[in-house]
Amino acid sequence: MKDAIIIGYGPAGISAAIYLKRQGVEPLVIGKDLGALEGYDDKVENFYGLVEPIYGKDLIRNGIKQAQNLGIEVITDAVISLKMQGDIFEVITTQEHYETKTVLLATGKTRRTMSRQGFSKYRGKGISMCATCDGFFYRRKKVGIIGCGPYMLHELEYLKKMTKDIIVFTDGHVLHGEVDVPVVHDKILKFCGTEKLTHVETSTGKVELDGMFVALGVPSSVEFASQLGVIIEKNNIVVNDHYMTNIPGLFAAGDVIGGKLQIAKAVYDGMNAADAIYNYIHKK
Protein backbone atom coordinates (compact mmCIF):
# COMPACT_ATOMS: atom_id res chain seq x y z
CA MET A 1 0.00 0.00 0.00
CA LYS A 2 1.30 3.41 -1.05
CA ASP A 3 0.70 6.60 0.89
CA ALA A 4 0.28 8.72 -2.23
CA ILE A 5 0.10 8.15 -5.96
CA ILE A 6 0.48 11.16 -8.18
CA ILE A 7 -0.96 10.80 -11.65
CA GLY A 8 0.82 13.08 -14.08
CA TYR A 9 4.46 14.17 -14.12
CA GLY A 10 4.15 17.75 -15.26
CA PRO A 11 4.88 20.81 -13.11
CA ALA A 12 2.02 20.18 -10.64
CA GLY A 13 2.67 16.46 -10.16
CA ILE A 14 6.45 16.71 -9.82
CA SER A 15 6.25 19.73 -7.50
CA ALA A 16 3.82 17.85 -5.27
CA ALA A 17 6.14 14.82 -5.30
CA ILE A 18 9.15 16.93 -4.28
CA TYR A 19 7.29 18.59 -1.41
CA LEU A 20 5.87 15.27 -0.23
CA LYS A 21 9.27 13.64 -0.30
CA ARG A 22 10.68 16.49 1.79
CA GLN A 23 7.95 15.83 4.35
CA GLY A 24 8.84 12.17 4.52
CA VAL A 25 6.05 10.76 2.35
CA GLU A 26 7.20 8.45 -0.47
CA PRO A 27 5.01 9.16 -3.46
CA LEU A 28 4.78 7.13 -6.64
CA VAL A 29 4.49 9.32 -9.73
CA ILE A 30 2.84 7.84 -12.81
CA GLY A 31 2.96 9.84 -16.01
CA LYS A 32 2.10 8.95 -19.54
CA ASP A 33 3.37 11.83 -21.65
CA LEU A 34 4.70 15.34 -21.45
CA GLY A 35 1.22 16.81 -21.60
CA ALA A 36 0.35 20.22 -22.96
CA LEU A 37 4.00 21.29 -22.97
CA GLU A 38 4.98 18.52 -25.38
CA GLY A 39 3.16 20.06 -28.30
CA TYR A 40 4.11 23.58 -27.32
CA ASP A 41 6.53 24.67 -30.02
CA ASP A 42 7.54 28.01 -28.57
CA LYS A 43 10.09 28.06 -25.83
CA VAL A 44 9.09 28.82 -22.25
CA GLU A 45 10.64 32.08 -21.16
CA ASN A 46 8.32 33.51 -18.52
CA PHE A 47 9.17 31.12 -15.70
CA TYR A 48 11.36 32.11 -12.79
CA GLY A 49 15.06 31.33 -13.03
CA LEU A 50 15.25 30.56 -16.74
CA VAL A 51 18.41 32.28 -17.91
CA GLU A 52 17.71 31.09 -21.42
CA PRO A 53 14.29 30.19 -22.84
CA ILE A 54 13.76 26.43 -22.78
CA TYR A 55 11.53 24.02 -24.71
CA GLY A 56 8.51 22.90 -22.66
CA LYS A 57 9.33 19.24 -23.07
CA ASP A 58 12.90 19.84 -21.88
CA LEU A 59 11.57 21.62 -18.81
CA ILE A 60 9.29 18.65 -18.06
CA ARG A 61 12.10 16.14 -18.61
CA ASN A 62 14.29 18.19 -16.26
CA GLY A 63 11.55 18.10 -13.64
CA ILE A 64 11.28 14.32 -13.90
CA LYS A 65 15.05 13.98 -13.61
CA GLN A 66 15.10 16.34 -10.63
CA ALA A 67 12.51 14.16 -8.86
CA GLN A 68 14.40 10.96 -9.68
CA ASN A 69 17.63 12.48 -8.36
CA LEU A 70 15.81 13.05 -5.07
CA GLY A 71 14.96 9.35 -4.97
CA ILE A 72 11.32 9.69 -6.01
CA GLU A 73 9.87 6.76 -7.91
CA VAL A 74 8.67 7.99 -11.31
CA ILE A 75 7.25 5.61 -13.91
CA THR A 76 5.83 6.00 -17.39
CA ASP A 77 2.55 4.17 -17.79
CA ALA A 78 -1.06 5.08 -18.55
CA VAL A 79 -3.75 4.90 -15.88
CA ILE A 80 -6.86 3.36 -17.36
CA SER A 81 -9.04 3.15 -14.28
CA LEU A 82 -9.36 4.48 -10.76
CA LYS A 83 -11.49 2.56 -8.27
CA MET A 84 -12.27 2.60 -4.58
CA GLN A 85 -12.49 -0.20 -2.03
CA GLY A 86 -13.70 1.38 1.18
CA ASP A 87 -11.40 4.35 1.57
CA ILE A 88 -8.52 2.77 -0.34
CA PHE A 89 -7.88 3.76 -3.95
CA GLU A 90 -7.01 1.24 -6.61
CA VAL A 91 -5.03 2.68 -9.50
CA ILE A 92 -5.08 0.45 -12.56
CA THR A 93 -2.54 1.12 -15.29
CA THR A 94 -1.92 -0.74 -18.52
CA GLN A 95 0.77 -2.74 -16.65
CA GLU A 96 -0.02 -2.83 -12.94
CA HIS A 97 -2.50 -2.46 -10.09
CA TYR A 98 -1.55 -0.22 -7.18
CA GLU A 99 -3.25 0.49 -3.87
CA THR A 100 -2.91 3.83 -2.17
CA LYS A 101 -4.35 5.94 0.64
CA THR A 102 -4.38 9.12 -1.45
CA VAL A 103 -4.33 10.08 -5.12
CA LEU A 104 -3.35 13.38 -6.68
CA LEU A 105 -4.73 14.01 -10.15
CA ALA A 106 -2.27 16.23 -11.96
CA THR A 107 -2.62 15.03 -15.52
CA GLY A 108 -3.19 18.34 -17.15
CA LYS A 109 -5.95 18.63 -19.66
CA THR A 110 -5.99 16.76 -22.89
CA ARG A 111 -9.67 16.41 -23.47
CA ARG A 112 -10.53 14.08 -26.26
CA THR A 113 -14.08 14.51 -27.34
CA MET A 114 -15.14 13.18 -30.68
CA SER A 115 -15.86 16.06 -32.98
CA ARG A 116 -18.25 14.15 -35.18
CA GLN A 117 -21.74 15.06 -36.22
CA GLY A 118 -24.30 13.90 -33.68
CA PHE A 119 -21.80 13.21 -30.89
CA SER A 120 -23.02 15.92 -28.52
CA LYS A 121 -26.64 15.35 -29.45
CA TYR A 122 -26.62 11.67 -28.49
CA ARG A 123 -24.28 11.95 -25.51
CA GLY A 124 -26.32 10.39 -22.71
CA LYS A 125 -28.89 9.30 -25.31
CA GLY A 126 -27.03 6.25 -26.51
CA ILE A 127 -23.45 7.52 -26.41
CA SER A 128 -21.70 6.85 -23.12
CA MET A 129 -18.21 7.65 -21.86
CA CYS A 130 -18.42 5.12 -19.03
CA ALA A 131 -19.20 1.41 -19.29
CA THR A 132 -19.40 0.87 -15.54
CA CYS A 133 -21.85 3.77 -15.16
CA ASP A 134 -24.16 3.07 -18.06
CA GLY A 135 -23.52 -0.52 -19.17
CA PHE A 136 -26.52 -1.69 -17.19
CA PHE A 137 -28.93 0.19 -19.46
CA TYR A 138 -27.76 -1.90 -22.40
CA ARG A 139 -28.32 -5.37 -21.03
CA ARG A 140 -28.83 -7.81 -23.89
CA LYS A 141 -28.75 -4.93 -26.36
CA LYS A 142 -26.51 -4.27 -29.33
CA VAL A 143 -23.68 -1.95 -28.47
CA GLY A 144 -20.48 -0.63 -29.98
CA ILE A 145 -17.30 0.44 -28.27
CA ILE A 146 -14.87 2.89 -29.83
CA GLY A 147 -11.22 2.40 -29.01
CA CYS A 148 -8.09 0.53 -29.93
CA GLY A 149 -5.96 0.01 -26.80
CA PRO A 150 -5.87 -1.18 -23.18
CA TYR A 151 -8.54 1.28 -22.04
CA MET A 152 -11.00 -0.08 -24.61
CA LEU A 153 -10.13 -3.69 -23.66
CA HIS A 154 -10.76 -2.85 -19.99
CA GLU A 155 -14.16 -1.34 -20.74
CA LEU A 156 -14.98 -4.16 -23.17
CA GLU A 157 -14.50 -6.78 -20.44
CA TYR A 158 -17.08 -4.98 -18.33
CA LEU A 159 -19.55 -4.62 -21.20
CA LYS A 160 -19.33 -8.34 -21.92
CA LYS A 161 -21.05 -8.98 -18.59
CA MET A 162 -24.03 -6.97 -19.82
CA THR A 163 -24.43 -8.11 -23.39
CA LYS A 164 -22.95 -10.55 -25.89
CA ASP A 165 -23.76 -8.36 -28.87
CA ILE A 166 -20.75 -6.03 -29.05
CA ILE A 167 -18.84 -4.52 -31.97
CA VAL A 168 -15.47 -2.81 -31.59
CA PHE A 169 -14.91 0.33 -33.66
CA THR A 170 -11.26 1.33 -34.02
CA ASP A 171 -12.26 4.55 -35.80
CA GLY A 172 -9.49 4.16 -38.35
CA HIS A 173 -6.80 3.33 -35.78
CA VAL A 174 -4.75 0.14 -35.50
CA LEU A 175 -6.12 -2.28 -32.92
CA HIS A 176 -3.61 -3.06 -30.17
CA GLY A 177 -4.55 -6.34 -28.54
CA GLU A 178 -6.93 -9.12 -29.46
CA VAL A 179 -10.69 -9.22 -29.12
CA ASP A 180 -13.20 -12.02 -29.68
CA VAL A 181 -15.96 -9.76 -30.99
CA PRO A 182 -16.47 -8.28 -34.46
CA VAL A 183 -14.27 -5.29 -35.31
CA VAL A 184 -15.07 -2.39 -37.63
CA HIS A 185 -11.88 -0.63 -38.70
CA ASP A 186 -13.58 2.19 -40.66
CA LYS A 187 -13.67 5.74 -39.47
CA ILE A 188 -16.95 6.81 -37.91
CA LEU A 189 -18.47 9.73 -39.78
CA LYS A 190 -21.70 10.44 -38.02
CA PHE A 191 -23.88 9.43 -35.05
CA CYS A 192 -27.51 9.15 -36.11
CA GLY A 193 -30.88 8.56 -34.52
CA THR A 194 -34.15 10.11 -33.52
CA GLU A 195 -34.60 10.76 -29.80
CA LYS A 196 -31.92 8.20 -29.12
CA LEU A 197 -28.94 6.87 -31.03
CA THR A 198 -30.01 4.23 -33.54
CA HIS A 199 -26.98 3.81 -35.80
CA VAL A 200 -23.62 5.17 -36.85
CA GLU A 201 -22.39 5.91 -40.33
CA THR A 202 -18.89 4.81 -41.20
CA SER A 203 -16.87 5.35 -44.34
CA THR A 204 -18.27 2.11 -45.78
CA GLY A 205 -21.81 1.94 -44.48
CA LYS A 206 -24.27 2.02 -41.66
CA VAL A 207 -24.20 0.01 -38.43
CA GLU A 208 -27.30 -0.19 -36.24
CA LEU A 209 -26.72 0.08 -32.52
CA ASP A 210 -28.59 0.69 -29.27
CA GLY A 211 -25.58 2.21 -27.60
CA MET A 212 -22.02 3.32 -28.22
CA PHE A 213 -19.31 3.48 -25.58
CA VAL A 214 -16.30 5.70 -26.09
CA ALA A 215 -12.95 4.38 -24.81
CA LEU A 216 -10.45 5.99 -27.11
CA GLY A 217 -6.80 6.31 -26.21
CA VAL A 218 -6.41 6.57 -22.47
CA PRO A 219 -8.97 8.25 -20.25
CA SER A 220 -8.28 11.77 -19.07
CA SER A 221 -8.29 12.30 -15.33
CA VAL A 222 -11.57 14.14 -15.77
CA GLU A 223 -13.00 10.91 -17.16
CA PHE A 224 -11.83 8.54 -14.47
CA ALA A 225 -12.58 11.09 -11.78
CA SER A 226 -16.15 11.42 -13.00
CA GLN A 227 -16.51 7.64 -12.91
CA LEU A 228 -15.77 7.81 -9.20
CA GLY A 229 -18.31 10.58 -8.67
CA VAL A 230 -16.03 13.61 -8.52
CA ILE A 231 -17.76 16.92 -9.15
CA ILE A 232 -16.73 18.27 -12.57
CA GLU A 233 -17.66 21.74 -13.73
CA LYS A 234 -16.90 23.09 -17.18
CA ASN A 235 -14.48 20.21 -17.64
CA ASN A 236 -12.56 21.22 -14.49
CA ILE A 237 -12.25 19.00 -11.42
CA VAL A 238 -13.76 20.88 -8.49
CA VAL A 239 -11.58 21.01 -5.36
CA ASN A 240 -11.89 22.77 -2.00
CA ASP A 241 -9.31 25.12 -0.42
CA HIS A 242 -7.22 22.05 0.43
CA TYR A 243 -7.12 20.80 -3.16
CA MET A 244 -9.35 17.89 -2.19
CA THR A 245 -12.27 16.79 -4.36
CA ASN A 246 -15.63 15.80 -2.89
CA ILE A 247 -14.09 12.34 -2.36
CA PRO A 248 -11.90 12.21 0.78
CA GLY A 249 -8.31 11.31 -0.13
CA LEU A 250 -8.65 12.29 -3.77
CA PHE A 251 -6.82 15.50 -4.61
CA ALA A 252 -6.27 17.45 -7.83
CA ALA A 253 -3.84 20.17 -8.91
CA GLY A 254 -2.63 22.02 -11.99
CA ASP A 255 -4.57 22.53 -15.22
CA VAL A 256 -7.22 19.91 -14.31
CA ILE A 257 -8.69 22.22 -11.67
CA GLY A 258 -8.87 25.19 -14.02
CA GLY A 259 -7.64 28.69 -13.36
CA LYS A 260 -4.54 30.00 -15.12
CA LEU A 261 -3.00 27.37 -17.35
CA GLN A 262 0.49 28.40 -16.35
CA ILE A 263 3.54 26.53 -15.04
CA ALA A 264 3.87 28.91 -12.08
CA LYS A 265 0.28 28.19 -11.02
CA ALA A 266 0.74 24.44 -11.48
CA VAL A 267 3.86 24.49 -9.27
CA TYR A 268 1.99 26.47 -6.63
CA ASP A 269 -0.92 23.99 -6.77
CA GLY A 270 1.47 21.06 -6.47
CA MET A 271 3.16 22.52 -3.41
CA ASN A 272 -0.16 23.20 -1.67
CA ALA A 273 -1.61 19.84 -2.62
CA ALA A 274 1.45 18.14 -1.09
CA ASP A 275 0.79 19.89 2.22
CA ALA A 276 -2.86 18.92 2.09
CA ILE A 277 -2.02 15.29 1.31
CA TYR A 278 0.52 15.17 4.13
CA ASN A 279 -2.03 16.55 6.59
CA TYR A 280 -4.69 14.14 5.34
CA ILE A 281 -2.42 11.09 5.74
CA HIS A 282 -1.33 12.13 9.22
CA LYS A 283 -4.74 13.05 10.51
CA LYS A 284 -6.02 9.53 9.89
Partner: peptide
Protein backbone atom coordinates in the same frame (compact mmCIF):
# COMPACT_ATOMS: atom_id res chain seq x y z
CA UNK B 1 -32.84 7.85 -19.03
CA UNK B 2 -29.78 6.02 -20.36
CA UNK B 3 -27.02 7.34 -18.15
CA UNK B 4 -26.85 7.83 -14.42
CA UNK B 5 -26.70 9.92 -12.42
CA UNK B 6 -29.01 12.09 -14.53
CA UNK B 7 -30.45 15.11 -12.75
CA UNK B 8 -33.61 16.70 -14.11
CA UNK B 9 -35.46 19.79 -12.94
CA UNK B 10 -39.20 19.67 -13.55
CA UNK B 11 -41.19 22.88 -13.63
CA UNK B 12 -44.96 22.96 -14.12
CA UNK B 13 -44.95 19.31 -15.05
CA UNK B 14 -42.32 19.71 -17.76
CA UNK B 15 -38.60 19.03 -18.05
CA UNK B 16 -37.00 22.40 -17.40
CA UNK B 17 -33.28 21.53 -17.43
CA UNK B 18 -31.23 18.39 -17.14
CA UNK B 19 -27.66 17.34 -16.63
CA UNK B 20 -25.59 14.15 -16.49
CA UNK B 21 -22.97 13.38 -13.84
CA UNK B 22 -22.22 14.58 -10.32
CA UNK B 23 -22.79 18.32 -9.89
CA UNK B 24 -22.01 20.74 -7.11
Amino acid sequence: IMSIPTLIVFKNGKVHQSTIGVQS
